[in-house]
Design a protein around this nucleic acid. Structure first.
Lengths: 211, 211
DNA sequence: TAGATTGTTAATCGATTAACAATC
DNA sequence: TAGATTGTTAATCGATTAACAATC
């Protein structure tokens, strides 16, 4: 077992990537893996893999490696707290509907509770799977006492600026923020940045160096 | 002027955020700003702002601050090399169409050259603005000798795995990668990671700490 | 036991922050 | 000139990597 070092933000950031690789191997029937092999696959170092996993408790076997099942369970727990994260979609325009499709068809670990918009033409319509689009003003009522785990913001920046404090006030602590508004909130010392469509790192990296 | 230190990846990553804040101020008629005020707005430190800007040459005025116009020009140049980045969209499903909307209506600095899909039902249709959807197999022909600056991948992972090497082979160096495939390429020493929908940092940060 | 591979500490590296001289 | 604020060097902090003892 171990020291349970608190995980730093860089470590936390890497978890989803570990999760994708491990889910894949699990699906393909792989049963165990060493830190060095996983590192090679992911383009990192064995040291980093071991350090990372050890932040959450030693779940490898010395001399043997890591059991895929165990790894998957652990990271699945860390990311999704077992079960699914109650999620609300805010904004059902083009981007909102695309994310909706991804959320319901491909993403795992999320359960869509409700969808909201402020456009009267949208309100009352249903998204595939019989999810009704509610009026954003009825947010609390529709959630009915349940505080969502995650809010997916697919609304213009101005709207997000107004809405965000309300969502945070409701106790929502997880966001997928596509609003172009820098919603940064501190939870237990972790400030999390937002990802914006169009902040193309690869393009940036290349161009800047080439200057 | 200055030492022209090479910019590190963390610095490069921050550029789009600077760009958003500065574009905003420019739009609002603000003409100058100090590193400390910009830092306060962005939630960082004055030191970091000055260090960052100095990687690209000293474009502030001692005793005065930074001219918004100058800052904007410099960062716009770094990010978009003046003019627009020739961009191709690959995959015109739900997500592809959403990104298309964003790309043409909201994002600036990108020029959509062409759109591709592999679905015969999609090929031949037109996206708003009279952009035809071409067969992905005709990629080179449609681009006609022009190497796109950026490819936006809105296709399943399996397809991306097959297509990516071809795109890199064509000389494409910029990607917005929504494919769930870790396309990592090294350019001049910079390895760039991919951003995946669903890698919800804020959710992660919160849950992991709370465990 | 010998070989392998983890868990964990120590060393290195790099990024951020602080300090201050330069200068507008 | 005095005040302000940058440009830049030095100090600190934190993350990554290396090394190795523990142990399966």
């Amino acid at each position: 077992m171990s020291t349970q070092n608190k995980a730093s933000l860089p470590v936390i950031r890497r978890l989803p990537k570990y999760y994708r690789y491990i889910s894949d191997m699990k699906k393909n029937g792989v049963t165990k893996i060493s830190s060095s092999e996983l590192a090679r696959m992911m383009g990192t170092t064995a040291s980093q893999v071991r350090q990372d996993f050890n932040c959450f408790g030693g779940f490898g076997q010395q001399g043997i490696g890591y059991q895929i099942d165990v790894l998957w369970e652990e990271i699945n727990h860390l990311l999704f707290h077992d079960g699914k994260l109650n999620t609300i979609l805010i904004g059902t325009g083009r981007l909102g509907r695309a994310i909706f499709g991804y959320l319901t068809a491909e993403a795992r670990g999320y359960h869509l509770m409700a969808a909201f918009d402020c456009n009267p033409d949208e309100i009352g319509k249903k998204l595939p799977g019989d999810i009704p689009i509610s009026d954003i003003r009825d947010l609390s009522a529709v959630c009915g006492g349940v505080v969502p785990d995650v809010a997916v913001l697919c609304i213009p920046r101005q709207s997000a600026m107004q809405l965000a404090p309300k969502l945070v006030g409701m106790g929502i602590k997880g966001f997928w923020n596509f609003s172009h508004y820098d919603l940064s909130v501190d939870y237990e010392g972790i400030t999390v940045e937002n990802v914006h469509l169009g902040d193309s790192l690869m393009t940036l990296g290349y161009r800047v160096r080439n200057d």
